[in-house]
Design a protein around this nucleic acid. Structure first.
Lengths: 343, 343
DNA sequence: AAAAAAACTTTACGCGTGAAAAGTTTTAAT
DNA sequence: ATTAAAACTTTTCACGCGTAAAGTTTTTTT
């Protein structure tokens, strides 16, 4: 590493013996210059520590190389895992991911979109909060910047949506539970935040009716995103008040199920599908911790690799063509039944 | 909102009836202009949708308003929670947090630091991977950009370090376990990645000797960051091979303990401190999920609010004064014993 | 070897802001 | 009312790059 200070691209062009515009071309696409030129630049790069100034680049570029990635809550390992997958895909496409978490709050969600606006991203992948999202503002954002939704849908917002086929997956697990024992009751929040929760409610009802069972709901109170706590607290109460209509319970999501499992354990109820067990509990999502509950949680694994891949693919296409999609694509991926000890 | 298109600060200055440099001053510090001027600008801001171009701003500013925040692994809810706390503190200080996860990989850690370098942050808060960190490169980074370490220390890297007092907290829980039953064996990875793991090992040994007990180690193999999996797999093995030297086990961290709990459950071992229970398991960190294990995990809660607050405070002071600290400050915060059902 | 195409160089301008200097107006202090 | 200080305006330059046009060299094709 030489001592000569390289302040800018001009300086660097001098020491590499190439004109600055050509150096600029190289940094935008190394394959766009002659092999011998590329070599000269790369030799210089090893001797001198130079990298183009991001701010100067983006000020002049028509489109930046940034892609925003907004998830509702990074504290939830499920979203942390999805985010990580998507980040990887964005990087390997030569773009720069910017990860933001809405921390469960609609104001933060809008604040995140505003931060992104300032960064002028090429596109945005957004998993919205859902029902509490300030839909009109999100919609306005998506009008300005190419946006693809995933995980939770908002009507008519963004160019496309990719998520899970709740109708299919809930059908799958309801059928399994009925087949392998008793028909499940549905454990859910009275007033769910997530649109998926509503779809799952409907899907449960449909599946039960298809199988000629009477749908039974255990609807519990509680606000916010602390689902484990709600599942635990309300689970304890439901158990002590003997409000479980069935000895098989399907939870609207794994985090509720994790709380309910803890409540059952504390109440001395043995969970599982064995002879000695008195309660079966199932969830939905295949949360990263679902395999370490006691017993392991029977659940539905969402195909978030596919959801992530298609989301990234779609936003890249939008960025590449520069067009908006003529029709809003909605694709739902099927989940997979994961059988563990709990049901 | 008027239709006049405001392209830049010049345009905006015109419609607000103020000169551009004064407008610039306003955006850098609204209190630095006369009240009447501020009012004029704010009236214009409501009529016209203008916000300064971030790239143009940062190109000219000596120091940007960005603070980098790098954590080893966002998939770990523990770090997700710390990150969220710190993010909030940064925002309320008028800075812009940039959250990056190293995903458990030293290459990614360096890549993150390089991305940050390009962004020219005012300062960086770094929770390094630890033993696998490419220490010299991290050191070089910290020489260039004000950096404060937290959670895991690297010798002589950065201006300060804030973390947990493992000696104290392990002493606390070892004493509790001894007092309330049997002396614990220490369940840990043979080859831990995290420097805290080494400190906890030493702390355990010291505490046991102080209390005149013979330290007993259960050292298990396994690579990587999938601690629950390692705790589960190796726990199953240790149990089946009857390699538990004591009926009280202190795990090096909660994630190992969560895995071990699952292994115990699957092996039909009843965990807890009751008469009927045959194994006590304790952890360290107070992982967000520790209260929902079955039974709830007895553990040490790290004071990460204090760690976060002091880290932010320190980096802000460094940024503000523009100086480097004369001596590297190392402050360890004491944890708190959290008693739950498992031990 | 000649012609055509590709790659490169030179020159010049633009992007939207920060910042400094010098002059002017407003506000606060005496 | 006078004076000083603070706040503002105007002017000018700087930042580090993208981009376009026109001319030159190198490589490829015929």
């Amino acid at each position: 590493m030489s001592d000569t200070k390289i302040k800018n691209m001009e300086d660097f062009a001098v020491v590499s013996g190439i004109s600055r515009p050509t150096v600029s071309k190289y940094f935008n696409d190394p394959d766009s210059v002659r092999k011998s030129t590329r070599h000269k630049i790369e030799v210089a790069l090893e001797r001198y520590d130079y990298r183009p100034n991001i701010y100067a680049i983006n000020q002049n570029r028509r489109r930046t190389k940034n892609i925003g990635l907004v998830v509702p809550n990074l504290t939830d390992p499920f979203f942390a895992a999805i985010a990580r997958t998507i980040e990887g895909l964005i990087v390997s496409s030569g773009f720069n991911p910017l990860l933001l978490s809405s921390h469960g709050g609609p104001e933060q969600e809008i604040a995140n979109l505003n931060s992104l606006r300032a960064i002028k991203p090429a596109g945005v992948l957004l998993a919205p909060l859902g029902r509490v999202s300030q839909s009109d503002q999100v919609h306005e954002f998506a009008e300005q910047i190419p946006t693809v939704l995933f995980d939770a849908n908002l009507d008519d917002v963004g160019e496309a949506f990719f998520g899970s086929d709740n109708m299919h997956s809930i059908g799958l697990i309801v059928e399994y539970l009925c087949r392998s024992g008793e028909a499940p009751a549905f454990f859910e929040m009275e007033d769910p935040i997530n649109p998926n929760a509503y779809r799952r409610r409907t899907a449960y009802q449909a599946a039960m009716e298809r199988l000629s069972f009477q749908p039974e709901f255990i609807r519990v109170g509680g606000k916010g995103w602390d689902f484990e706590e709600i599942g635990y607290r309300e689970g304890l109460r439901a158990i002590s008040e003997d409000r479980l209509p069935s000895r098989t319970v399907l939870c609207s999501n794994d985090r509720l199920a994790i709380g309910l499992l803890a409540a059952a354990f504390e109440s001395g109820i043995q969970v599982g599908r064995g002879e000695m067990d008195t309660l079966r509990i199932a969830g939905h999502d295949d949360h990263p911790f679902a395999r370490y509950t006691c017993p392991g949680l029977t659940t539905i694994s969402q195909d978030y690799e596919a959801i992530g891949a298609r989301s990234v693919e779609t936003i890249l296409k939008l960025i590449d063509t520069g067009e908006r999609s003529e029709s809003r694509e909605v694709t739902l991926f099927e989940g997979r039944l994961v059988m563990r000890g709990s049901a």
